[in-house]
């Protein structure tokens, strides 16, 4: 068991090094530079551009830039090109803003996908099954922002609550209850929108996984013994069907962070996704690279955690 965990961590560390190479070289091999953001500015003299390039180490070879980046990241002195603020606190603040969104979206995905998928598989071919499958397809086929716009129109028009931003401006003197409700409305709509894709995808996986398990011999044996239907489905089949999903936990994270770029832009949510978007517009390389790296680290941590969990839950793994 410990061997397995240690080996797993070792593999992840190697992956982390590859990831940091990719995150860095990817940005620097592409054309387009921070010094070119404002090429028409008449006040930008060639000397100024040279000065900027020197300050950002842009004249050094790529591997030296990589070394500088890792060094500054390690000492926490990495500065944004845009406003010379330290990158890590900047990302941390935005991460704290995004966190409730990520958490609620994740909770929604995992609490909705399973019952929907399992119920569909157990009652295969029923009206419920067919309509949820079709609905799932419909939901992954809509452009995310199209659906969000409709949702905004509907919520604002029907309930008359504002949903743009993290809270309503100028509510400082309102009652606590109003403030909380305001926050909740602002949080729920974007989280639901971010979760919808995940729910649709995951519930289909759950359904097909459950179908596969239900056609196994041991389920037939359990039925042949004359056990209650519920005992067979929930006692014998469910556990085995759910096992693979332990490993999916980590892999859903990049989707969530990537999707945040669009949803935070729509809902004017000052989170990680918008920070990334602003950084891209400003050619703010340190922020882009560090964001990519942090997203990858989160994913690696997530997959590591799910691999270990999987080994704990599934005794067959330990044999290898």
């Amino acid at each position: 068991m410990w061997n397995y965990i240690i080996r797993n961590i070792g593999q992840r560390l190697i992956l982390l090094i590859i990831v940091s190479f990719v995150a860095h070289s990817f940005i620097h091999l592409a054309p387009g530079e921070p010094s070119e953001v404002d090429p028409m500015n008449p006040r930008m003299k060639p000397e100024d551009i040279a000065k900027i390039r020197a300050a950002f180490h842009l004249d050094d070879p790529v591997y030296m830039q990589y070394a500088y980046w890792i060094r500054d990241l390690g000492t926490g002195e990495l500065k944004s090109f845009k406003d010379s603020q330290p990158v890590l606190p900047k990302i941390w603040n935005r991460f704290l803003n995004s966190l409730p969104l990520f958490l609620l979206a994740t909770v929604l995905v995992w609490t909705w996908a399973f019952p929907t998928g399992i119920h569909g598989a157990v009652h295969r071919g029923s009206l419920y099954d067919r309509s949820t499958v079709l609905l799932a397809y419909a939901l992954i086929s809509v452009p995310g922002f199209f659906l969000s716009f409709l949702a905004i129109l509907w919520v604002v028009g029907w309930f008359g609550v504002p949903v743009i931003g993290i809270k309503t401006f100028g509510m400082d003197h309102a009652d606590l209850a109003f403030k909380i409700m305001d926050r909740v409305w602002h949080l729920v709509i974007p989280s639901v929108m971010a979760a919808i894709g995940g729910i649709a995808v995951l519930s289909r996986y759950v359904r097909s996984q459950m179908l596969e398990v239900l056609s196994q011999d041991y389920v037939r044996t359990a039925r042949a013994k004359g056990l209650q239907d519920d005992t067979v489905v929930y006692g014998h089949a469910l556990g085995n069907a759910l096992l693979p999903f332990v490993t999916m936990f980590g892999l859903l994270l990049p989707e969530l962070i990537g999707g945040a770029v669009i949803f935070e832009q729509i809902f004017a949510w000052p989170g990680l996704g918008r920070l990334g978007y602003e950084a891209i517009l400003n050619r703010d390389f340190p922020v882009i690279m560090t964001l990519n790296l942090i997203a990858a680290i989160l994913t690696l941590a997530g997959t590591l955690l799910s691999d270990i969990l999987y080994a704990v839950v599934d005794p067959r793994i330990r044999l290898h």
Binding site: I14, L15, I18, V19, V22, A23, F26, I27, A30, P31, G32, L251, P254, E255, L256, I257, G258, G259, V261, I262, G273, G276, Y277, I280, L281, R283, I288, L291, N292, A295, A296, T299, L300
Partner: peptide
Amino acid sequence: MRFTDAMMCFPRFFLILTAVALLP
């Protein structure tokens, strides 16, 4: 496969967006 795993760790849409923004 390690390279593939590394690529899967990145948020895909964000990478695409970055590349599209940086390239002409």
